Simulated assay, not measured.
Amino acid sequence: MIVTMSPEVPGREIGEVLGIARGNIVRARFFGRDFIAGLRNIVGGEVNEYSELLEEARHTAFDRMVTDAGNLGADAIVSFRFTTSAIMEGTAEILAYGTAVKFK
Rank of each mutant, 00 (worst) to 15 (best):
K102P: 06
I87A: 05
R33F: 04
E89L: 08
D75E: 10
D34I: 09
M1A: 07
F30A: 10
V101Q: 05
F82M: 11
G98N: 06
G19C: 08
G38F: 08
P10I: 00
H59F: 00
A28N: 10
K102W: 08
D68N: 14
A21E: 02
L72P: 08
E52W: 15
A100D: 07
V17K: 12
G38W: 13
G44N: 05
I25A: 02
G45W: 10
I94H: 06
Y97G: 02
I25N: 04
T99N: 04
T4F: 04
R12C: 00
F31P: 01
M5C: 05
I94P: 04
G23S: 07
T84L: 14
T4Y: 02
I77L: 06
A96C: 05
I94F: 13
E46I: 15
T4P: 05
I2W: 07
V17Q: 11
T83V: 08
A86E: 15
E46Q: 14
G23C: 07
R33S: 09
I42T: 06
I14N: 04
N24H: 05
D68H: 11
G44W: 09
I20Y: 01
G19I: 07
I20Q: 04
V47H: 12
V101F: 08
A76P: 04
A61Y: 04
T60A: 14
S79K: 00
T91K: 15
F35M: 12
A74P: 02
G90F: 13
I25F: 04
V66C: 09
H59L: 09
I2N: 05
P7A: 12
T67I: 00
A28D: 05
T83C: 08
V17R: 13
F31M: 02
L72I: 11
